[in-house]
């Protein structure tokens, strides 16, 4: 699963960058995150509860930041183990740039799941990842500039799924991965 999109956050770049490195803000922004400890330098430990299709699980795992360009971009990656439910791993490359009205945030996410999650929920991963990404940035926006968050929500750009399969095909989730 790969997903790329961009968002306008109504806050200046320094504030957005600081937020993206603050465990408290990240915990509040990551949907279903009940614990997030650690530092950007040492990495974080996170506990996240998510429901993907019929499988609801609590994932525990490490989150690391790499390829950090101070104030501009980083790569955030994590792998969570959900016991019998399986595992999820993924990462996102996040880039900030100045824009009218705040900061433009471009991101590319890739995610994969294993075990029962793959068996029962893989076809839902694209949709779930898109929803989680949207929620994450909504939450981030709310943390940074609560008053504009509501108005901005209306103007969310539609995320574009970049599937490996031919664009324009009427495919969803795993269907796109059929070796045709």
């Amino acid at each position: 699963m790969e997903l790329a999109a961009s968002r306008l956050i109504a806050a200046d770049r320094a504030a957005v960058w600081a937020a993206l490195n603050d465990p408290a803000v990240l915990q509040a922004a990551i949907p279903g995150c009940s614990e997030l400890t650690g530092t950007p330098e040492e990495g974080f430990e996170a506990v996240v509860t998510q429901k993907i299709g019929p499988v609801k699980a609590t994932f525990r795992g490490a989150v690391t930041l790499s390829e950090v360009v101070e104030g501009e971009s980083y790569r955030i990656a994590g792998e969570g183990k959900g016991g019998a439910a399986g595992f999820a791993k993924g990462g996102a490359r996040v880039r900030l740039s100045d824009a009218e009205g705040g900061t433009q945030l471009d991101y590319e996410v890739e995610a994969s799941v294993g075990g029962k999650l793959a068996q029962l929920g893989s076809r839902l991963i694209d949709g779930v990842a898109r929803r989680l990404a949207d929620q994450f940035f909504d939450n981030l926006q709310a943390q940074l500039a609560p008053d504009v968050a509501a108005a901005e929500a209306e103007a969310v750009e539609v995320a574009e799924a970049v599937d490996e399969a031919e664009a324009g095909k009427e495919t969803k989730g795993w269907f796109a991965r059929l070796r045709s």
Partner: peptide, 10 residues
């Protein structure tokens, strides 16, 4: 999938 996860498991 490429990592060996069975996507059609139900």
């Amino acid at each position: 999938d490429d990592e060996g996860q069975l996507l059609t498991g139900s």
